[in-house]
Amino acid sequence: MQQSRRAAKSIMANWELYALIAFPVAYFIVFRYIPMYGVTIAFKDFSPALGIWGSPWTGFDHFRTFFESYNFEQILRNTVFLSVLLLLIAFPIPILAALMLNQVAHRRLKRFIQTSIYAPYFISTVVLIGMVYVFLSPNSGIVNHLIVALGGEPILFMAKAEWFRPIYVFTDVWQNTGFASIIYLAALAGIDPHLHEAAVVDGASKWQRVRHIDLPGIAPTILVMFILAIGNLMNIGFEKAFLMQTDVNVDTSEIIPTYVYKIGIQRAQYSFSAAIGLFNAVINLILLVVVNQTVKKMNGNSLF
């Protein structure tokens, strides 16, 4: 009883804070947690006429069908390979951009660079892919014009399966580097400037200050972002991959999100597509928990 009274008094004393947090909590409950009951269709032969609870149970049949399908290995390989490429290339670049921007002393130049690298983030993915098609056009694209001017032959970039991944990774880096670097810039701003002043007095170079002050200062932030990136490893952006996908590059561009769209929306196999999506989510959850616990044991920093 006493604990309940204390809790009630605490809530009444800080009701403004609880009222402020009530809206995001309600949002997650209504739009994130309640819809989770729909995952049950992955274990059923869902029929819109019968509804979720009226549809018959099938157990793990849909999962088994996906694992035994002829293109399971190809889809999984494409998804994992593209995700790892993004992690290896796109993840560290915002860190490097933030470290370099932090060293720019001229304010106007720094603001110009920041604005230049932030701007692509606000470009719609549809517009971005439209620009890619224009730039890489074999007839009028500026890239092929440069290749021809240097003595080469025009390349059908969007018609060659081997070019899908490089183009995807490059566009992701170009579009998201600036916005992703904001978090690291904020972490760098929290480092005590007296450390840099003392290092300058001791004769430390910029590289030495970056190595021994900046990087250790933002290491916890980097680890948290890395854990989040691992937890989201299999959730590659569907929209960009789908817009870049053609009949001739489908061997490398067919990933789990695009396959789920085709199976669930175009072919109306809702239970089968839900099973594939649930499989993808479980893989992400396992990766998140494993990496989080590993990092926590190594240095004590973790997401939870």
Rank of each mutant, 00 (worst) to 15 (best):
Q3W: 12
A7E: 01
A7L: 04
K9Q: 04
K9V: 06
S10G: 08
I11Q: 03
I11V: 12
M12W: 08
W15L: 11
A19P: 04
I21M: 13
A22I: 01
A22V: 03
A22L: 06
P24Y: 05
P24Q: 07
V25L: 13
V25E: 03
Y27P: 02
P35T: 06
M36T: 10
Y37H: 10
Y37I: 15
G38S: 04
K44R: 14
P48V: 09
L50V: 08
G51R: 13
G51P: 10
I52K: 06
W53I: 05
G54H: 15
W57F: 01
D61S: 08
D61Q: 08
R64N: 12
R64S: 12
F67I: 15
S69C: 04
S69G: 06
I75P: 07
R77D: 07
T79E: 00
T79H: 00
V80A: 08
S83D: 13
V84S: 06
L85F: 14
L86G: 11
L88Y: 09
P92T: 11
I95F: 04
L99R: 07
M100Q: 06
M100V: 12
V104N: 03
V104H: 00
K110L: 00
F112P: 15
P120R: 04
S124I: 12
S124K: 08
I129Y: 11
V134A: 09
L136F: 10
S140V: 12
I142V: 12
V143M: 04
V143D: 03
L146K: 03
I147M: 07
V148Q: 14
L150W: 15
F157G: 05
K160C: 01
F164I: 02
R165Q: 14
R165K: 08
R165I: 10
P166H: 03
P166L: 00
V173Q: 03
W174H: 06
G178S: 01
F179D: 12
S181A: 12
A187W: 11
H196V: 15
A198W: 02
A198C: 11
V200P: 03
G203A: 09
A204M: 11
W207V: 13
V210S: 14
H212A: 01
H212K: 01
I213Y: 09
L215C: 03
L215T: 02
P216D: 09
I218W: 09
P220G: 00
I222N: 01
I230F: 15
G231K: 00
G231C: 02
G231N: 02
L233G: 05
L233R: 02
L233T: 01
M234S: 00
E239I: 00
K240D: 06
L243A: 06
Q245F: 12
T246Y: 10
T246H: 10
T246S: 14
D247L: 12
V248T: 14
V248D: 12
S253H: 14
S253V: 02
I256V: 13
P257G: 06
Y259Q: 05
K262I: 12
G264W: 10
R267P: 15
Y270K: 06
A274F: 07
I276Q: 05
G277A: 13
G277F: 01
L278Y: 09
N280T: 05
N280P: 04
V282Y: 06
I286H: 01
I286F: 07
L287F: 11
V289N: 00
N292P: 00
T294L: 11
K296V: 09
K296A: 13
K297C: 00
N301H: 10
N301M: 07
L303F: 13
L303K: 10
